[in-house]
Design a protein around this nucleic acid. Structure first.
Lengths: 136, 136
DNA sequence: CTAGTTGCAAAGAGTTTGCATGGCG
DNA sequence: CGCCATGCAAACTCTTTGCAACTAG
């Protein structure tokens, strides 16, 4: 039977307020350091919140921190990540058609995609523009 | 100008011989410990081989070792890769609808996907079947 | 009360780096 | 010979764990 603690409230509240962003455990701990929330607690809370699917965990690149994001009520909210190989920018793509990719691959290829691990690599629009001028 | 060293030959040769498997840096180092190949060298060699696209690096599970696999000569620009997080199997998916994903992301998200770098992570059909019996 | 929660410090795992040595071309 | 490659040890990063103190229900 889970308890309601000050720290847990603060962490969840912070994640909700920043639902549009990817937050690392470290970022959350830093943001709440004035409120006296320990880093270990942040990790343990996030683990709990993930288990109950309140928060989604993304592993965007190896060795780097995992990212967390508030999982809005509707679970059709899965999104994919586009990572630019040139500038390194990470774009979150939320889009109906991308959700269909998941379905297609599941039905036709018998493969359940884990969107939290999957990253599309390529070149973003900005870099495409710059590339036409500046050849590498 | 890269040099040809004994260690590099051994590492590449081992990866080629085990092209059907996903190998961790540690596994490679262990397999070659009799041949006097240091772990640091394995890491640095793999890094080089990845850069020249001779080897592919996979992140199969968070916190765990990355895996490496020999990238066969095949032209991998035309299809996508599905990597099973459970069994490590790599599936090459060639399919008209997947090609449309590329187009969709290019047109709607202004992002040119590099299919040779992009890997979909998830659970394959085989593992899904096994999973229904053995809950984790 | 009593079981879940906290948080410091320390352990851990995987990977990277510093630096002196070794060896390819 | 010059320069890249090697390898040990130590550093590093992110995360988990041990354990005693704390607190919600």
């Amino acid at each position: 039977m889970p308890y309601n603690t000050r720290q847990q409230e603060l962490i969840l509240s912070y994640i909700k307020q920043n639902a549009s962003e990817h937050l690392t455990a470290d970022a959350i701990a830093s943001a709440l350091k004035d409120e006296q929330v320990g880093k270990t607690t942040v990790y343990r809370c996030l683990e709990r919140l993930c288990k109950q699917h309140t928060v989604r965990k993304y592993i965007l690149s190896e060795g780097k921190s995992a990212c967390y994001q508030y999982a809005l009520g509707e679970d059709c909210h899965r999104h994919f990540h586009l990572k630019c190989l040139r500038c390194g920018r990470l774009i979150h793509a939320e889009c109906e058609q991308l959700a269909q990719i998941e379905e297609h691959i599941c039905l036709e290829h018998d493969f359940d995609i884990d969107a939290s691990r999957t990253v599309f690599y390529g070149i973003c629009g900005e870099c495409k523009k710059n590339e036409s001028n500046t050849e590498e």
